[in-house]
């Protein structure tokens, strides 16, 4: 890629079917040493690219759920008694205030994960300086934003659980109406994805406990943070869909 040195070793290769033939190579990419090297930037870019593709997949899953939702909602079904087409869609009564609290929690967690992301970028930038013996850039005692995000995220998940309980109290079970089926489906699918984010955050944290390089941690936190933002955005979308199209 762009980091290749220009020291191209050229060797003429003779007839291809005669013995092993050395290929033509460029230099190696990146150096074995040197803090936030271009190699780390390569890794970061690659991880972000991978994340974008993950988000494409997640989007496709929710797009198909949404289209199922829209089709099902507009779909007339035959009424058994009259033989005529009727629309059997009945809206769920949503516990809106509870959902708003959860939404607030998730948005706050999105903010805190962004702070965590910026924090780790700062720490990674200072890492080479700190590595110099005798140089101190102050105690690393900043606020544990990663931990805060995990707590807020778990708070959101527990909040969603409470919403489910509330819905059951109101008589809307999974199979009660098509609308309630979709409510449980979409919220559960989102919760599973968000839980994946929580696990990713915990592994990002454990990287620092395992004393792996800060660069690795930075990549994990960065990618998870973007994923988390996407989850927050996705939730807002799901909430809007469930609220306005119920």
């Amino acid at each position: 890629m762009g980091t290749l040195s220009s020291s191209v070793v050229l060797k003429d290769s003779k007839a291809g079917d005669r013995g092993p033939k050395p290929p033509i190579y460029g230099g190696d990419s990146g150096g074995p040493d040197g803090g936030s090297s271009s190699r780390d930037l390569d890794r970061l870019r690659r991880a972000r690219l991978g994340l974008v593709l993950v988000l494409v997949t997640v989007t496709m899953i929710f797009v198909s759920f949404t289209s199922a939702f829209v089709i099902r909602k507009g779909l007339p079904t035959i009424d058994e008694k009259t033989g005529a087409y009727v629309n059997d869609w009945t809206g769920v009564s949503l516990p809106v205030s509870l959902l708003l609290i959860n939404t607030t929690l998730l948005i706050l967690s999105s903010l805190s994960v962004e702070l965590a992301r910026r924090q780790i970028f700062r720490r990674a930038a200072l890492a080479p300086v700190q590595a110099i013996p005798g140089v101190s850039v102050g105690e690393d005692r900043s606020f544990p934003w990663l931990g805060a995000t995990v707590v807020l995220g778990l708070g959101f998940l527990i909040g969603q659980w409470i919403v489910w309980q509330e819905l059951r109290l109101r008589g809307f079970y999974l199979a009660t109406t098509p609308s309630s089926s979709f409510f449980y489906l979409l919220t559960a699918a989102h919760a599973v994805h968000l839980f994946g984010g929580v696990v990713a955050l915990l592994s990002a944290q454990s990287i620092s406990w395992l004393r792996r390089p800060v660069e690795t941690q930075r990549i994990w936190v960065d990618v998870t943070a973007w994923y988390w933002h996407f989850m927050a955005l996705l939730w807002v979308y799901i909430f809007a869909l469930l609220y306005f199209a119920r």
Binding site: L53, V56, T57, V58, T59, M60, I61, V63, S64, F65, A68, R72, T77, I78, E80, L174, A175, P178, S181, L185, A189
Partner: peptide, 29 residues
Amino acid sequence: LLAFGVLLSAGILLLMDRNLGTSFFVPGG
């Protein structure tokens, strides 16, 4: 990347219809 997510969703809906009593694909009567 674009197609398998859709099949995954459809499979989840089918499993729910089979085991959890939802009616995404199964009509009444």
